[in-house]
Design a protein around this nucleic acid. Structure first.
Lengths: 220, 220
DNA sequence: CCTACCGATCGGTAGG
DNA sequence: CCTACCGATCGGTAGG
């Protein structure tokens, strides 16, 4: 189905030689030890390109310059890699958003700040964000429910701002706070489907404009 | 890693018996022939629960009550199933949105109608929508670029409405038409992450409120 | 549509 | 961190 360069038949010996070449070509410069952070970095790239179930341990080991089995000196199983990536990826947002939410400023200012901070974290951690927000569903039950908890925190931060804006009278037209929160987060999260860190538009420009749209929607 | 009922050891004979039971338990009532539509229906369910690469041909054949190899009497490969689902899933939206876009009504009315139609199609084809909008990325290069074309049509329909609203003066505050379009679609598409056809909120209620938010955001 | 099976690849491990 | 390998499962096929 795919046009395949691998279609060229090779003997067992040649395949072995190719594997050695592949290893030599890898990102690792000869024999420096590989760190867990390097494994995660390469895994983020691969997961964001192909998604978790389509990425094999051999893809990851190739990328860091190890043999497949050697990965298990650093991790205990494949899912642990995904969990570490997703946890850190979401906490990046939670940490930054918490300090904004807890500041005593008006709700509309806090929402604008939150949107700006969101865009700058998206820019700084683009691939990890895409993996973290879309691929946590591949985790096993226990890890998944842990992440669901983090995601609930994330939603609560926005709900807090909107609720405050309703009681303060800043957001008089909000009839359904939950839908308003989901629509705001939905608009925000959807940026990761079209944003590019290499694109023309700077995160701050996009943040400015999205904040305008969101605030008009809530203010009425 | 998963608590597993399959962990109970079974002999080869018992596994065979289980396979027969499983087949008997399947949705097919004994020996009626299976249609391509049934295969697609079961595949939609499975893909929406577990995503395309995680669903095996054996999962699909179990669900329709066939043996794995027998699926190839109806299809030529796994990807063809996904392609059929995704193509139909997107065209459902395109067909309905086209007639709205082409009607001569004011842009703000057309946008409100489009949002309502979106919600009613989401309600009627919930699982297929989730598969179609999220899992087209698993298609091979050729099929993927075909779907990218359909998605571009989809975006163009919304861009048309927004552009018309700008020239007519209905949407005076739209400084960046493309971002406005992406934000609108992003808000709309994100509903499939939290909407449930069995939930309290009716599609028309959600559509009403989302149209209010979107129109305020564009009108200023 | 079943029987019977294929080569490839998967995540993971024992022993060093 | 490598060598050498495991059982399980994958998409798919030949022949009837």
């Amino acid at each position: 189905m795919q046009p395949s360069c691998r279609g060229v038949p090779v003997s067992v010996e040649e395949a072995g030689a190719l594997a050695v070449q592949r290893k030599a070509r890898s990102s690792r410069a000869s024999s420096k030890p590989v760190s867990l952070e390097q494994i995660e970095r390469e895994a983020v790239k691969l997961f964001s390109e192909k998604t978790y179930p389509s990425v094999g341990m051999r893809d990851i080991s190739d990328a860091v310059g190890l043999l497949p089995g050697s990965l298990y000196a650093h991790i205990s199983n494949k899912e642990e890699i995904l969990l570490r990536i997703v946890e850190r990826g979401i906490k990046n947002y939670l940490d930054a958003l918490k300090s904004i939410t807890e500041s005593g400023r008006p709700a509309s200012e806090r929402l604008r700040s939150a949107i700006h901070v969101y865009m700058s974290i998206l820019d700084a951690t683009f691939e990890q964000t895409r993996v973290s927000f879309n691929q946590w569903t591949y985790l096993g039950e226990q890890n998944k429910s842990y992440i669901v908890g983090l995601r609930a925190e994330y939603e609560n931060l926005f709900s807090r701002i909107i609720d405050d804006g309703i009681t303060s009278g800043e957001f008089p037209s909000v009839r359904r706070p939950r839908i308003a929160m989901l629509a705001t987060i939905g608009m925000l999260n959807s940026t990761m489907l079209w944003y590019s860190p290499d694109g023309e538009l700077r995160p701050s420009e996009i943040g400015d404009y999205l904040a305008d749209i969101a605030l008009k929607g809530l203010t009425g």
